[in-house]
Nucleic acid binder design. Structure first.
Lengths: 138, 138
DNA sequence: ACAAGTATGCACCTTTTGGTAAGTGTCGAA
DNA sequence: TTCGACACTTACCAAAAGGTGCATACTTGT
């Protein structure tokens, strides 16, 4: 491993990974951006419904809490996937929509979506087993 | 909204979600299966390299610990995405490969992979900002 | 006057996830 | 005989993710 004990080079280039500092590959990069319990659902919903008001989104994504929705939306906004529009009205009115980048990501999500749908039976079965295993463990 | 206070129905059908018990959509199902820090990388690697021995995989997926690799592999195996082959030899010899299901998932992952690659500049920039924001916060 | 809706912020807590370090048993090499 | 490789396993701990509930400031409806 450490075979250059004799090289006179003071500060070797330390050959780095061929890809970017943080990401091992494109997939890795993508997943960092959509990781988060509700993000894909938000993307999914926005891709279908166009600009959506906060409250509407909140009701659409069942079981999400305010804190979580806001948090995920902010991250998505920070990642330039969604655009927040504040109408500066009172009572507050705000809506969210996909940026071009967000839209393209939503499109890349489609095959995953289809995979899930096509193999829903498999996945459901497998998850049911998991649950029952957990149950028997206790 | 709640206009049937007078309906005589004893146990209303309680109209439930159109999709499966746990999943809001196919995408949701898929993401549950590939969530986990190393799973996509494992899938990715196995898709490219065919059957791979444990140690090899361990060295390929840089920075993963034994515990994590094993754990993720077990889950992937439990989800019927990878197949574990134990040659019952001593010293132990085991390898891992994709099942047909796993292979199809890996294929569905390709667009995401491409998206990440195509938008790597964007994503990297955005993440760099995140990091610097965190840094200034402290 | 009061409740409800609007889009968020914040404090606190629990659960989940990930990581570190050590140990297992058997074999062949040194 | 000790050591390292092999494929794990376990106990313990830290960090991140997620959840609950209360607060804000202003308006409209009752």
């Amino acid at each position: 491993m450490s075979s250059d004990r004799s090289t006179p080079v003071p500060a070797p280039p330390q050959n780095c990974t061929p890809t970017l500092p943080g990401f091992t590959c494109g997939l890795d990069a993508t997943l960092r951006v959509i990781s988060g319990k509700w993000k894909p659902l938000i993307l999914y919903f926005l891709a279908q419904g166009g600009p959506t008001r906060y409250g509407e989104l909140r009701r659409a994504v069942r079981d999400v809490s305010d804190k979580m929705l806001i948090q995920q939306l902010k991250e998505l906004e920070g990642d330039a996937l969604v655009k927040r529009t504040d109408y500066k009205e009172v009572p507050p009115r705000v809506d969210y929509s996909l940026t071009p980048l967000g839209r393209s990501l939503a499109e890349a999500l489609v095959p995953l979506c289809n995979w899930g749908t096509e193999n829903l039976a498999e996945v459901t079965r497998v998850f049911a087993e998991r649950e029952s295993l957990r149950a028997t463990r206790r």
